[in-house]
Simulated scan of single mutants.
Amino acid sequence: MAPKTNPGRFFEDYAVGQTIHHAVPRTVKMGERAVYHMLYPARHALYSSDQFAQGCGLPFSPLDDMIAFHIVFGKTVPDVSLNAVANLGYAEGRWITPVWPGDTLRSVSDVIGIKENSNGKTGVVWVRTTGLNQHDETVLEYVRWVMVRKRDAATPAPETVIPDLAQVIPADRLVIPRRLDFSGYDFTLAGEPHRWADYEIGEQIDHVDGVTVEDAEHMMATRLWQNTAKVHFDTTARPDGSRLIYGGHVISMARALSFNGLANAQMVVGLNGGAHANPCLAGDTIRAWSEVLDKAETDAPGVGALRLRLVATKGGEAFTLKGEDGKYLPHVLLDLDYWALVPL
């Protein structure tokens, strides 16, 4: 009799060209926002107030961009990273269509790259994931690559295919939500006076605040996104007996902390790249700093774009990232390169 349970895919189960339709679509409503704002100090006004969003040309406030990311990502875990050793990086991410309360999201992934590691026990798999709503409109797309265990180390290595990925999404490929208009932007209600012109390329911002993370809250968040990766829940899944904090939890915490200094970076619309540099564990205090990497104007009225590096740390000196050997310093948790929309 065939087994009824799913042990997850191992490295041998992937091949370039595969398309994986992920199970369990999810209808999202205001409950997701309430829990998200409870878990993280999220305060960006566009995602907090219908009235503020309407003043920016939208019909009402969409759900936070990272809610869309987490839900689309979570759908992929049982098929992509259930047996992962680590989630290694991101590229070519774009938010295409806002997610509104009542939308139903599902995910589809295409395997675009594969490479066995030299130890013969693991390999790296690249997937391009698309999140779709109930109208089959793309809400989000991104590439990520994951280190996955092999089922049998004796299995011959597949032919290596490494995808050619853009280092940066050109500003003219960013999708601006329809009708978005910052020409009448209310800086008082947003919380800070700083507009696009006030930021300079190369400027660094220490976001000051910190949040100590605990197991209970990160497991609640990870369950909320229906992420079933063993390393986040099962203490026997890691040699040191700890639960690894979900990398997306660190992303959302750092993004929320960046409000202090980037309150007007209202919408994340592009993900150029990202790395989870070191593991985050319960008891770590997450802090964040940002660097302005680039600036661009857009065709939307009053709307500019900032390319930002967001770095999350667990201590250490602000604005330090890598050592002389080019490797991330031990206190660095996250290095994220993204585009955000700000008022001109």
Rank of each mutant, 00 (worst) to 15 (best):
A216N: 01
G316E: 11
F11V: 00
G123N: 06
N83H: 13
C56W: 14
L189G: 02
V139Y: 03
W339D: 01
R178F: 13
M38F: 13
V161D: 10
G304V: 01
L344K: 13
E32M: 02
M38D: 03
Q167K: 14
S107E: 04
D240G: 00
P177R: 11
Y338L: 11
L58D: 09
E116C: 09
T285Q: 08
K29Q: 00
C280E: 00
G123H: 07
Y142W: 07
T188V: 14
A166I: 05
P41H: 05
H232A: 03
E317Q: 13
G57R: 10
T235K: 15
T313G: 13
T285N: 08
G74H: 08
L174V: 01
H249G: 04
K150S: 01
Q204K: 13
V28F: 09
I96K: 15
V213S: 12
V332Y: 12
P193C: 07
S118M: 13
I162Q: 06
A171F: 14
V342Q: 08
L132T: 00
G274K: 10
G283V: 05
L336D: 03
V342P: 05
W225L: 07
V80C: 14
E159P: 02
G57A: 08
N227V: 03
L344P: 11
K295A: 03
H276P: 07
E200I: 00
K4I: 04
R33M: 04
V127M: 13
T104W: 11
F73Q: 07
V124T: 09
I251C: 05
L308A: 01
Y185K: 02
A340M: 06
K29G: 00
V85G: 10
D13M: 12
M147K: 12
L306R: 02
H22S: 04
R43F: 09
R243K: 12
D206N: 10
T129H: 09
P158S: 00
K75R: 14
I162C: 07
S81V: 02
V85K: 15
Y338C: 08
V143C: 05
L336P: 04
S252V: 01
T97E: 06
M267D: 01
H70R: 11
V143T: 04
K4R: 15
A53F: 06
V99N: 03
E137S: 04
D209I: 02
I114S: 09
M219S: 07
L82K: 15
K314V: 00
D181H: 12
S118F: 15
